[in-house]
């Protein structure tokens, strides 16, 4: 009798243990992620100024948000930043991965060198690039000291070009990580296929163009998803690199959201912009999750 109950208890415990262990983190995520998403969404419909208020004003905040020139600047900037960042990062990452995949000597040493920028925080990257790009102390000054008197690189001080300096710094930081993802993808490709193609007389270029890159489709998708959410949430890099300047030229939705919610006492509009950002991310993520889940089913 007793052993039976014992075994029964054990199976039941084994059944319950994972759930028990996961419960606290599940509850915390539920509250701090999804709970606060709901809270923000609610706030976006209220007339909250400095502290949360619960006087509902309907879609007023969204109307005001879309009337703000500042918000449009932020949107144009995120469009420029995200597209350049994702395209360049993917291209550079793929190129590095392919070059590293040529069975070269010292790969074990080269790989971490490209990967290390990812270990830095965006604040460090931003500050370092701020100094490097500053015409008064960085690249331009050095080039002129070395005798190239006409050298000029003042993008970071130029309202129209400053957003591209953020792209440069961000690409420097993440392309190594994208490289690692592609490299893993490359290593997963069945050698037999490549050998077969080679026997059929395919050139190296054709090999990559027709076989390898199409086979890397899942890696492309993951890279795209990771890079796009990094782009939308980028805040610290902008703060460290340009502080949103010159003027307001490099304001992004994330910096916009912070300043309206916490420094401008227009919490309602800030919350509305946060909801818009969530929508943008959801527009990218939901089709991705959907296709992933469909494939598995």
């Amino acid at each position: 009798m007793r052993p039976a109950t014992d075994a029964d208890f054990r199976t039941r415990l084994q059944d319950w243990l994972p759930k028990l262990v996961l419960a606290p983190s599940f509850a915390a995520t539920l509250l701090f992620v999804y709970g606060f998403i709901v809270f923000t969404a609610v706030l976006s419909f209220t007339g909250s100024k400095m502290l949360p208020l619960y006087t509902f004003v309907g879609l007023e905040n969204y109307r005001k948000l879309w009337a703000l020139e500042h918000w449009h600047t932020a949107l144009v900037n995120i469009a420029i930043f995200a597209s350049c960042y994702i395209v360049i990062c993917t291209a550079v990452g793929l190129m590095l991965a392919i070059f590293l995949d040529q069975k070269i000597r010292g790969e074990g040493m080269l790989r971490p060198i490209y990967l290390y920028p990812m270990a830095l925080s965006f604040i460090v990257t931003g500050t370092a690039w701020k100094w490097f790009l500053d015409p008064g102390i960085g690249l331009e000054k050095t080039m002129r000291l070395w005798g190239w008197e006409s050298f000029s690189f003042t993008w970071i001080k130029d309202s129209n070009m400053a957003i591209y300096t953020i792209v440069i710094a961000a690409v420097w930081q993440t392309s190594g990580f994208v490289m690692a993802m592609f490299l893993a993808g490359l290593r997963g490709i069945d050698n037999e296929i490549l050998k077969a193609a080679q026997i059929d007389g395919a050139t190296s270029f054709q090999l990559y163009r027709r076989i390898v890159i199409p086979l890397l489709r899942p890696a492309f998708l993951s890279a795209f998803v990771i890079l796009s959410h990094l782009a939308i949430k980028s805040y610290d890099l902008v703060i460290a690199l340009t502080g949103g300047g010159p003027g307001r030229a490099t304001e992004l939705p994330a910096t916009f959201m912070y300043s309206y919610t916490f420094t401008r006492n227009q919490m309602g509009i800030g919350a509305a912009s946060a909801v818009m950002m969530l929508m943008a991310i959801a527009a990218i993520m939901i089709p991705y999750l959907y296709s992933e889940l469909k494939e598995k089913a």
């Binding site: 100024k49 020139e69 500042h70 309202s159 300047g245 010159p246 003027g247 307001r248 030229a249 300043s259 420094t263 401008r264 006492n265 227009q266």
Partner: peptide
Amino acid sequence: AVKNAVYDVVTGAFN
């Protein structure tokens, strides 16, 4: 809110 709206335009004009 007004102060920051003024900032936006003034800094824009200066730049």
